[in-house]
Protein backbone atom coordinates (compact mmCIF):
# COMPACT_ATOMS: atom_id res chain seq x y z
CA UNK A 1 0.00 0.00 0.00
CA UNK A 2 2.77 2.45 0.98
CA UNK A 3 4.78 1.44 -2.10
CA UNK A 4 1.74 2.09 -4.31
CA UNK A 5 1.43 5.61 -2.86
CA UNK A 6 5.17 6.32 -3.30
CA UNK A 7 4.97 5.06 -6.89
CA UNK A 8 1.93 7.27 -7.58
CA UNK A 9 3.66 10.28 -5.99
CA UNK A 10 6.73 9.81 -8.21
CA UNK A 11 4.45 9.58 -11.28
CA UNK A 12 2.65 12.81 -10.31
CA UNK A 13 5.93 14.65 -9.60
CA UNK A 14 7.29 13.54 -12.97
CA UNK A 15 4.13 14.85 -14.67
CA UNK A 16 4.50 18.23 -12.90
CA UNK A 17 8.18 18.32 -13.91
CA UNK A 18 7.22 17.61 -17.53
CA UNK A 19 4.62 20.40 -17.52
CA UNK A 20 7.07 22.91 -15.99
CA UNK A 21 9.83 22.07 -18.44
CA UNK A 22 7.50 22.32 -21.45
CA UNK A 23 6.35 25.71 -20.10
CA UNK A 24 10.03 26.77 -19.89
CA UNK A 25 10.73 25.66 -23.45
CA UNK A 26 7.67 27.40 -24.90
CA UNK A 27 7.37 30.57 -22.82
CA UNK A 28 10.89 31.65 -21.77
CA UNK A 29 12.56 34.17 -24.06
CA UNK A 30 16.13 33.38 -23.09
CA UNK A 31 17.63 30.58 -25.16
CA UNK A 32 19.75 29.54 -22.16
CA UNK A 33 16.58 29.06 -20.07
CA UNK A 34 14.99 27.15 -22.94
CA UNK A 35 18.03 24.84 -22.99
CA UNK A 36 17.87 24.37 -19.20
CA UNK A 37 14.16 23.47 -19.53
CA UNK A 38 15.02 21.02 -22.28
CA UNK A 39 17.59 19.27 -20.07
CA UNK A 40 15.02 19.09 -17.24
CA UNK A 41 12.52 17.56 -19.68
CA UNK A 42 15.01 14.96 -20.92
CA UNK A 43 16.05 14.08 -17.36
CA UNK A 44 12.39 13.68 -16.42
CA UNK A 45 11.93 11.27 -19.32
CA UNK A 46 15.00 9.31 -18.23
CA UNK A 47 13.71 9.02 -14.66
CA UNK A 48 10.35 7.85 -16.04
CA UNK A 49 12.09 5.11 -18.04
CA UNK A 50 14.11 4.04 -14.99
CA UNK A 51 10.86 3.96 -12.99
CA UNK A 52 9.42 1.45 -15.47
CA UNK A 53 12.21 -1.00 -14.60
CA UNK A 54 12.30 -0.37 -10.86
CA UNK A 55 10.75 -2.82 -8.42
CA UNK A 56 9.19 -1.59 -5.21
CA UNK A 57 10.41 -4.43 -3.05
CA UNK A 58 12.95 -4.55 -0.22
CA UNK A 59 15.80 -5.05 -0.96
CA UNK A 60 15.85 -3.83 -4.59
CA UNK A 61 19.41 -4.57 -5.80
CA UNK A 62 21.37 -3.79 -8.99
CA UNK A 63 21.51 -6.64 -11.54
CA UNK A 64 25.14 -7.53 -10.74
CA UNK A 65 26.49 -10.97 -9.79
CA UNK A 66 29.27 -11.32 -7.23
CA UNK A 67 29.61 -15.14 -7.08
CA UNK A 68 27.50 -16.32 -10.02
CA UNK A 69 26.00 -19.18 -7.96
CA UNK A 70 22.49 -20.58 -8.70
CA UNK A 71 21.34 -19.25 -5.29
CA UNK A 72 22.48 -15.75 -6.26
CA UNK A 73 20.68 -16.09 -9.61
CA UNK A 74 17.49 -17.06 -7.77
CA UNK A 75 17.88 -14.07 -5.41
CA UNK A 76 18.54 -11.63 -8.29
CA UNK A 77 15.54 -12.91 -10.25
CA UNK A 78 13.39 -11.87 -7.27
CA UNK A 79 15.13 -8.67 -6.14
CA UNK A 80 17.17 -7.19 -9.04
CA UNK A 81 15.86 -4.16 -10.92
CA UNK A 82 15.36 -4.42 -14.70
CA UNK A 83 18.71 -3.80 -16.47
CA UNK A 84 17.17 -2.95 -19.87
CA UNK A 85 15.76 0.53 -19.03
CA UNK A 86 19.08 1.41 -17.37
CA UNK A 87 21.00 0.46 -20.52
CA UNK A 88 18.54 2.40 -22.71
CA UNK A 89 18.79 5.46 -20.46
CA UNK A 90 22.59 5.29 -20.65
CA UNK A 91 22.30 5.51 -24.44
CA UNK A 92 19.68 8.24 -24.12
CA UNK A 93 21.92 10.31 -21.84
CA UNK A 94 24.74 10.24 -24.40
CA UNK A 95 22.46 11.19 -27.29
CA UNK A 96 20.83 13.90 -25.13
CA UNK A 97 24.24 15.22 -24.21
CA UNK A 98 25.23 15.38 -27.89
CA UNK A 99 22.06 17.32 -28.75
CA UNK A 100 22.44 19.68 -25.76
CA UNK A 101 26.10 20.31 -26.54
CA UNK A 102 25.26 21.23 -30.13
CA UNK A 103 22.47 23.57 -28.97
CA UNK A 104 24.82 25.14 -26.38
CA UNK A 105 27.40 25.71 -29.13
CA UNK A 106 24.79 27.42 -31.28
CA UNK A 107 23.55 29.62 -28.40
CA UNK A 108 27.09 30.71 -27.45
CA UNK A 109 27.83 31.39 -31.11
CA UNK A 110 24.67 33.51 -31.38
CA UNK A 111 25.64 35.42 -28.23
CA UNK A 112 29.12 36.10 -29.57
CA UNK A 113 27.79 37.40 -32.87
CA UNK A 114 24.62 39.22 -31.78
CA UNK A 115 25.33 40.00 -28.12
CA UNK A 116 22.11 38.55 -26.66
CA UNK A 117 20.54 35.18 -25.86
CA UNK A 118 17.01 36.62 -25.95
CA UNK A 119 15.35 34.93 -28.94
CA UNK A 120 13.19 37.96 -29.89
CA UNK A 121 15.99 40.53 -29.48
CA UNK A 122 18.32 38.32 -31.53
CA UNK A 123 15.79 38.18 -34.36
CA UNK A 124 15.46 42.03 -34.24
CA UNK A 125 19.24 42.57 -34.29
CA UNK A 126 19.67 40.11 -37.16
CA UNK A 127 16.79 41.76 -39.10
CA UNK A 128 18.40 45.20 -38.62
CA UNK A 129 21.75 43.86 -39.85
CA UNK A 130 20.08 42.39 -42.95
CA UNK A 131 18.27 45.73 -43.60
CA UNK A 132 21.59 47.60 -43.41
Amino acid sequence: MVEDYVFALIVVVLLINTALSIYGIVRRRSLVKKLISLTILSDTVFVSIILVGFIFKYPAVPPVYSTGSPEEAAFLSQHAVDPLPQALVLTGIVIGFAVNALIAFAIIQLYRLVGTTDARKAVKVLAEEVAE
Binding site: E3, D4, V6, F7, V52, G53, F54, I55, F56, K57, P63, S77, Q78, A80, V81, D82, P83, L84
Partner: peptide, 10 residues
Protein backbone atom coordinates in the same frame (compact mmCIF):
# COMPACT_ATOMS: atom_id res chain seq x y z
CA UNK B 1 -0.03 -0.49 -8.51
CA UNK B 2 3.73 -0.26 -7.95
CA UNK B 3 5.68 -2.90 -9.94
CA UNK B 4 6.86 -5.69 -7.60
CA UNK B 5 8.44 -8.15 -10.04
CA UNK B 6 10.80 -8.12 -13.04
CA UNK B 7 9.25 -8.23 -16.49
CA UNK B 8 10.04 -11.29 -18.62
CA UNK B 9 12.64 -9.61 -20.83
CA UNK B 10 14.48 -8.13 -17.83
Amino acid sequence: KAPLALRELG
